[in-house]
């Protein structure tokens, strides 16, 4: 029910691949923790006014050390450590089976496939069920490549090539967009991502090469 409200073609909370799913999991865990901490602070603030007697025996040192050090430090160390370990797993380490070149310009995306083959239709074609590296750059200003249901985003910066690894569980149509403000056409810089079953993808590449 709650999750249904979060679904959408561009929703990061409606993941369609393992990488986006782990990001969504991280979000739900942090949301739960944040809700608890928020409730704790507001309840203490309320008690200070409504039932001052309940807290009057806490010494200044206990407030500072308890609330300011003992409460946040373990949470932050654990969370940051876990996020760094997760970040390591999401890095494009080693070579993915497939590397696709993505180039942004005002205000469209184009994608190039290994060997110069591939359909040049502005759609990003990729095989489902395996990780794919997208090497992103820009021909003019800074853009950002973002397919929320498959993974995070990476900026397309002129003079730099940045690599992001995506993975889709199932064949299907996904949507991506430009996330970094890039001028007047920034609104319309969406692109289609089509994930194919591996054999269909191979056929598509072979067909385009001919």
């Amino acid at each position: 029910m709650l999750l249904a409200g979060c679904s959408g073609e561009l929703s990061a909370l409606d993941p369609a691949g393992p990488r986006a799913a782990s990001l969504a999991t991280l979000w739900w865990i942090m949301l739960g923790g944040a809700a608890l901490l928020f409730a704790l602070v507001m309840v203490l603030f309320g008690i200070a006014y409504l039932r001052p007697g309940w807290l009057s025996r806490i010494t200044p040192m206990q407030w500072i050390v308890g609330g300011g050090l003992v409460l946040p430090i373990p949470i932050l160390v654990l969370l940051t450590g876990a996020a760094l370990v997760l970040g390591e797993q999401l890095l494009p380490k080693g070579d993915a089976p497939l590397r696709i070149e993505g180039q942004a310009r005002q205000w469209a995306w184009s994608f190039g496939y290994p060997g110069g083959a591939g359909p040049y239709d502005g759609t990003l074609h990729m095989p489902a069920g395996e990780p794919v590296d997208i090497a992103v750059t820009s021909a003019d200003v800074i853009h950002s490549f973002w397919v929320p249901r498959l993974g995070g985003k990476i900026d397309a910066i002129p003079g730099h090539v940045n690599v992001i690894r995506l993975e889709a569980d199932e064949p299907g149509i996904y949507w991506g967009q430009c996330a970094e403000y890039c001028g007047q056409g920034h609104d319309g810089m969406q692109f289609r991502v089509e994930a194919h079953a591996p054999e269909d993808f191979a056929a598509l590449m072979a067909g385009a090469a001919q």
Partner: peptide, 18 residues
């Protein structure tokens, strides 16, 4: 609290510039 969330690199790749 949302600032701490955004400080986490993996989550930031989704939330950044949104």
């Amino acid at each position: 609290l949302t600032g701490v969330m955004l400080a986490m690199v993996p989550f930031n790749t989704q939330a950044h510039d949104s």
